[in-house]
Design a protein around this nucleic acid. Structure first.
Length: 203
DNA sequence: GTTATGATTTACT
DNA sequence: GTAAATCATAACG
């Protein structure tokens, strides 16, 4: 099995102030989970940036603070997981400093390790793209649920490793998905994904 | 207390 | 193309 193990990126990485740049930079890096003793590793292929109070698509728009989104106001490096449509556990990484409610939504990974666990969790026989493409599918494959709400991303259970950042020519941008209610902010090109990659939710 | 709804996915016409 | 699934949270009264 294993690729050589890597150290997790330090929490300071997630405390950068430019959430859009960070969403782009996360492409190509490795997301590791070890839930219930099941180790899975995926290469990040799709992300979206949510820019705190000034972003109409963000749960923290206009400084909105609720029980659900309060962790967005913590320091970068916390996990923000919430249940969407009563079914899907969507996984975000909180970024920036305390008081700045920015986050990056992780939407897809390419399976690298523990694919058997991912297939079992998803009820699939083959590693079709939908195994880990799409935020709900990705979380389910990696065992991420709201039980991880507020967890720091520097533990054996949940971490991001350096991986191999993507060169610009392999990065595509697009408007974010499923936020038509956000008016003009729905047009912002804050979705990032790897070109020519099958483990991506939409072209 | 009651109601509306969603940063989605899947199945079906 | 449309619709159902499914429920914790948020908004409202």
């Amino acid at each position: 099995m294993g690729l050589a193990s890597q150290d997790p990126l330090p929490l300071s990485y997630f405390q950068q102030s430019d959430v859009v740049a960070l969403a782009r930079d996360l492409l190509g890096r490795y997301l590791l989970t070890e839930i219930d003793g099941q180790r899975t590793l995926g290469r990040i292929t799709e992300t979206e940036a949510y820019a705190g109070h000034g972003d109409k698509a963000c749960h923290a728009h206009m400084q909105r603070k609720t029980k659900r989104n309060q962790i967005m106001y913590a320091t970068g490096g916390h996990a923000y997981v919430y249940l969407c449509y009563g079914i899907h556990h969507l996984f975000n990484i909180v970024t920036n400093q305390e008081g700045e409610a920015d986050a990056v939504l992780l939407r897809a990974v390419e399976p690298l390790e523990g694919t058997g666990y991912m297939l079992e969790r998803r009820g699939l026989k083959d590693p079709l793209p939908r195994l880990t493409a799409g935020p709900g599918n990705m979380s389910k494959a990696l065992g991420i649920t709201t039980a991880l709400y507020g967890r720091l991303l520097d533990t054996p259970e949940l971490q991001v490793q350096a991986g191999a950042p993507l060169p610009d020519e392999q990065v595509a941008t697009a408007p974010r998905v499923g936020i038509d209610y956000a008016g003009e902010d729905a047009q912002l090109p804050w979705r990032f994904y790897e070109r020519h990659q099958r483990y991506v939710s939409k072209k």
